[in-house]
Each structure stands twice: as C-alpha cells, then as structure tokens.
Computed example of a mutant assay.
Amino acid sequence: MRAGARNALTDVPGIRVGHAQRVGGGYLTGTTVILPPGEGAVAGVDVRGAAPGTRETELLDPRNLVERVHAVVLTGGSAYGLSAACGVMDRLADAGAGFPVEGGVVPIVPSAVIYDLGRGGHFRATPAAELGAAAYDAASADEARNGSIGAGTGAVAGGLAGGVGTASAVLGSGVTVAALAVVNAAGSVLDPSGGLLAGARYGLPGEFGGLGPPSAREADAWRPVKVTSFNTTIGVVATDTALSKAQCGKLAGVAHDGLARAIRPAHTMVDGDTIFGLSTAARSAPSSAEPQDVLAAGADVFSRAVAHAVLAATGRPEAPAYLDVFPSARLLQEERP
C-alpha cells in the first residue's frame, strides 16, 4: 500500500474538493464541498454520534430510490449551516446535474454539520447558501490542503485547534481509497500514553516521519483550557472501485473505526459523528478478497486524515496548535524554529 500522488481525497479519480470560509466580523466558520464525477457517485452513510445535524441522509438507505449523489456538503454552523447546501444545489441545477424528474433535475446533496457556533464572536454568524456556492466554485481535482480551512475553519479537537484533514491509499490492485475528515472533537486526539497524535500511528512509511512522541514534561503539562460541550467529527471516505449503496454504507461504518482509533472517546451524546461513503464505480466490481482490503484501508485513511487535520490546524488563543503545545514532537532538524 502507498499513498496517492496528493495523499488526499482528490486522489480518487474524478473527485473534486472545494473550501470556502469566513473569518472576521464575527465569523469563524466555513463550508467544504465534495463533487463526484459525471453522473454522481453511489453513496451510503453511517451516523454514530447522538447529536447529528444532517440533510438527505435517509435517501442513502439501500431500500430507498436514489442511487447516486451529486455532491456532499460538510459545513460549520450547526443546523443553521445546512443552508449552505442550497447554494450547491443551485450550482448543480444550473449545470443540469441531478436526479431527472419531469421538467428538470433535482440535485441530491447529502450534508452534515459541525458545531462551531459563536467561535468567531457572533452566534448567528454561520454559513449560508452563498458560502456553499463559493465552495462549489472553488472545487478542484488538485485540492489537497489540510488545516483550518473550509468546514474546519472554527473547529477544535480536545482543546487543540481542529480542522480539515485528508489522506489516501492505493492498494496493490490499483484501487484508491481516500478520506477527508472535519475534526471538531470533545474527545482527545492524543495517544493515551503521551502526547503523540493517535491517528499518526496508522501513517504509511515516512508520512509522519517528522513526528515523534513529545517530551514527558510537555505531555504532563498539557491541560486544555476549554473543551467544548457540543462537537462532531464528520467526513467522507471514497473509492474508485464499484460498490453498491449497502457496501458504501459499510465503508462509511468501517471508517468510523478509524475515527475511534484517532479520537477518544468518540460517538458520544454530544457528538454528531457522521461519515459518508462514496464509490465513483470507475473500476469494475472487486474480487472476492478485495472488499476486505478496501474496508481496512477505509479505516486507516480516516485515522490518518484526523491526524493531518490537527497537525496542520492554525492555533488561536482558545485552541492552540498541536506543535505549539508539543514542540518537541517535531523531530526533523530542518523543521525546527
């Protein structure tokens, strides 16, 4: 197994990712859009948190009509932020992309939110349709950034700055599996034995080679100033191999294992943890052994994406960056201040 060229969700051929955010004037929030190729992607979902904010997830039940989605929206703003999906729907409808009905199309845009209300100063400074449209317009097949961008702009992670993270894996068969996570967790993202990022344990060779366990002094001194009481980690795991709706749901479910490896505890009463599974079906249906490899990779790429989100996040007074708290975790000489 190896990482894709970008080590990002966009390593799945045809998938585009766009971010838009507002910072200042009371805002600290944003929206991320995932756009599949062509006629859309087969999709499933798995909701594990007890306080989800979602839209169009019931359509992804394998018993229901719609087979493909035309975008996935991940956004800040709690339930208010779901309106960002309206801007994405408008853009898709203008492009003629959607479920065909008499007289036109209805774009299918499942969505999930994180709780970041008030983190920029104003409680109602939340994403709206305009921010969703801006994220759609920014979508690119080359997008591979991690950090405090898009839906992760105002995120926190166990008292540290949270954000967006992404990672990919290319299997021996040539199948690509990749994830994008928006990490906004009450649970700790640190290994219980110290201050190392828990998700980094699942990194591919060299991926987190510049990191090591921080000093015992730094680990013992870490006391989060403020851990939020409303949270949620959301994301997407995608592959180019052909999967059914039910199998996409299973892929999303196994990605939750990766979430739980990287965040402790997860899926609590105040989390709305939601993961979408996507298949572009660009490759033929997998052999009998391959689904196990795809599922295993789905868990690992999500753990890695969580680690990348926290490692790249921008610190702020109420939520410091990981390497500001644990500077000794940085091992590479050329990266030292």
Rank of each mutant, 00 (worst) to 15 (best):
Phe208His: 11
Gly212Lys: 11
Ala221Leu: 07
Thr228Ser: 11
Gly199Arg: 08
Ser229Met: 10
Asp220Glu: 15
Ala221Tyr: 02
Ala221Met: 07
Arg201Ser: 12
Leu197Val: 13
Val227Ile: 15
Val225Phe: 08
Gly206Cys: 13
Glu218Lys: 06
Ala198Arg: 09
Leu211Tyr: 14
Gly206Met: 12
Lys226Arg: 15
Gly212Tyr: 04
Val225His: 06
Tyr202Ala: 15
Ala221His: 02
Ser229Ile: 03
Gly209Asn: 11
Trp222Ser: 00
Asp220Gln: 14
Ala198Met: 12
Val227Asp: 05
Pro224Arg: 06
Arg201Ala: 15
Gly210Ser: 13
Glu207Ile: 09
Arg201Phe: 10
Ser229Thr: 13
Leu196Asn: 02
Arg201Lys: 15
Gly209Leu: 10
Pro224Lys: 04
Ala221Gln: 08
Arg201Glu: 13
Arg223Ser: 10
Glu207Met: 10
Glu218Ile: 04
Leu197Trp: 04
Thr228Tyr: 01
Gly199Asp: 10
Arg217Gly: 00
Glu218Met: 11
Lys226Thr: 11
Gly203Ile: 08
Ala200Gly: 08
Gly199His: 05
Val227Ser: 01
Gly212Leu: 02
Gly199Ile: 08
Ala216Val: 13
Ser215His: 00
Gly210Phe: 15
Ser229Pro: 00
Ser215Thr: 14
Gly210Asn: 07
Pro214Gly: 08
Glu218Tyr: 09
Arg217Tyr: 00
Gly212Pro: 00
Gly199Leu: 11
Arg223Thr: 14
Ser215Phe: 02
Gly210Pro: 00
Val225Gln: 13
Pro224Gly: 03
Leu196His: 04
Ala219Gly: 04
Gly210His: 15
Arg223Leu: 12
Tyr202Gly: 01
Pro213Trp: 01
Gly199Phe: 13
Ala219Met: 08
Val225Pro: 01
Phe208Pro: 00
Ala219Asp: 04
Ala200Cys: 08
Gly203Cys: 12
Gly210Glu: 14
Gly212His: 10
Ala200Trp: 01
Gly206Arg: 07
Pro224Val: 05
Phe208Asp: 10
Arg201Asn: 03
Ser229Leu: 08
Phe208Gly: 05
Ala216Lys: 03
Pro214Thr: 07
Lys226Gly: 05
Gly203Gln: 10
Glu207Ser: 12
Gly206His: 02
Pro214Arg: 00
